[in-house]
Design a protein around this nucleic acid. Sequence first.
DNA 1: AGCACGCCGACT
DNA 2: GTCGGCGTGCTC
Length: 672
Amino acid sequence: MFLHISVFRPLEEILIYRCPPELVKEVSVGKRVIVPLKTQRATGLIIKILDHKEKIKDLEDIKPIIKIIDPYPVMDESLISLCKWASEYYLFPLGMVFKIALSCLPPAKPPYYPARIHSLLETIRGENRQIGLDAPSLTEDQKKAVEIIKGALSRDTFSVYLLHGVTGSGKTEVYIQAVDACNRSGKGAIVLVPEIAITSQLIARFIKRFGEKVAVIHSGLTKGERLSEWLRIKEGKAHILIGVRSAVFTPMDNVGLIVVDEEHESAYKQEEGFKYNARDVAIMRARMINATVILGSATPSLETLHNVHTGKYKYISLPQRINKKPLPPIQIVDLRKRKTDSLLTPELQEAIKKRLCNKEQVLLFLNRRGFSRFILCDDCGYVPPCPNCSVSLVYHKKERKVCCHYCEYKADPPDICPVCRGQNLKALGTGTERIEEELKNLFPDAKILRMDKDTTSKRHAHHFILTSMEKKEAQILIGTQMVTKGLDLPEITLAGVLLADNMLYLPDFRSAERTFQLITQVAGRTGRKDKPGEVIVQTFNPDHYSIAHASRYEFDRFYQFEKAYRKGAGYPPFKRLIRILLKGNRAESVVAGSALFKQLLDKYMDRTKIEVAGPVPAPFHKLRGKHRWHFLLKSQSTRYMRNQLKQVLQAFHMEGIRGVEVEIDVDPLHIL
DNA sequence: AGCACGCCGACT
DNA sequence: GTCGGCGTGCTC
């Protein structure tokens, strides 16, 4: 007997192994095996059992497998197909896709593997269904949404719904009812969330309603915890899985519904190694098993809206907040008119003061951590750069270091300019640390908390900051990205975006969309309960369409504008993109490699169907010590582009270029 | 990925 | 001389 094994290594080929007679009775597709690989042992997955009649060349050279790890298949045919699709689509080795998909499992057979697997259906039916009695009454819009999704679930056909609901419109309750309906029909549900730490409130609500039936898998768990959650799913004790990105590959049988919360979130795209988008993989998984998908967002991505308009996805709207709470008014503060350097403008200070007097809370967002953006020599203009990356070092005052935000580099801040020996070094630009300091000076009686990568590195730090806000021990929360999402703090009545322009002029086609989403999301953090909220957005570009439309909640207008821009410039969703990055330690080899790659692109690609831009130095032309050049491919469809690119990659590999690594990003979220 | 092999610098 | 640095090549 011979087996097709996909080894968990970045190999292009599926390998063939022999199965020794004593293991034949244990063999089945979807079980993991240990195999000899060159001089080592490696783990792999059985993906096919070969017929005796099939010809196998060089029978003598085929090694036998060493052992079978799993007592039962850990992947069914549909999940194997999904991994195969993902490997093809993202041009990433199949074995590595399997490795990531099965990363929740222990590498070897644990002693406490369950002897028997219950059928999911059986356990759900047998269960006492007391949980979930405290379901809040739904608004008319929510009821309609739930009915539509229930209808889809009962049809057992593949369908995707965009649940477009303004912040605070009660999307979570719709998810809960949909998941409940799915469970009642004897099927499991997967709920994808962008980040566990930020989604703790959503998880808490699910657990409150479904109790033990909820399993949560994320990187914060120990290996044992992760395994036991996975086993609860496999044994049919848990029918609801909540998890981040990689949970989309969890081997759960009989999935009827996949929810993708905040579908527009960039966290769904893995940026290293296997660059997959969990939202898109979720949709493909559902398609393969005739399941229903709910994509939830207050600010859907252009891709998803486009799919609604072309009829691929169906649209459900929750246009109002629950209890008809108004969306908080957004006031634009024009920074061109400000008199001081500080980002705490008089308008903002006044608003903060008012909220503090009312014993309410304030949320401030600034997309840059550290104290100052860079250090500048006032005499000669020198700015200390990172030795490994093409960026300036950021000054961190508390730590008394200058730090690179892209690699691990840290150094003592210079006291004199290393170039001209001048003594007039200035810390320019503003980060969250400086704002925290300024706030403390301005409001000495208020308790101020900062939430960014620097203050949340310790375990449970997130939790401490949030409970401190919940208990109203603190009055002002200043933070980076992580304060913009999912926070549900009823006492926050003022939210401020300190500098909306920060991401607006990045050389990236999505910067306007991101700015719009960010303002809308930050605004959504206020006025969620009884007290009305207020939002201040500070900008140098008050007339920019993303800022102007966001400030008036004109989603459709922004969308029309952005659509026209994307169409005109040939960007997604109207054209598909693949980014190719070449990197290496030596600049010359990367440049030479890029030139060769360009030749091969010209040779193999049909340039009437595929536009090739590049090679050009990537926006960070040096990162972590590696020199980087890149290409951007554009086309109507990715299929054709991927097929031709495969040939180019093969040819490039044949040339035996040394010292150049190639990274492929299909559907890149950004081109930086 | 992970390991072996191989070819150059600075140590007993 | 040879220990070990990491660039390169291979995996049924």
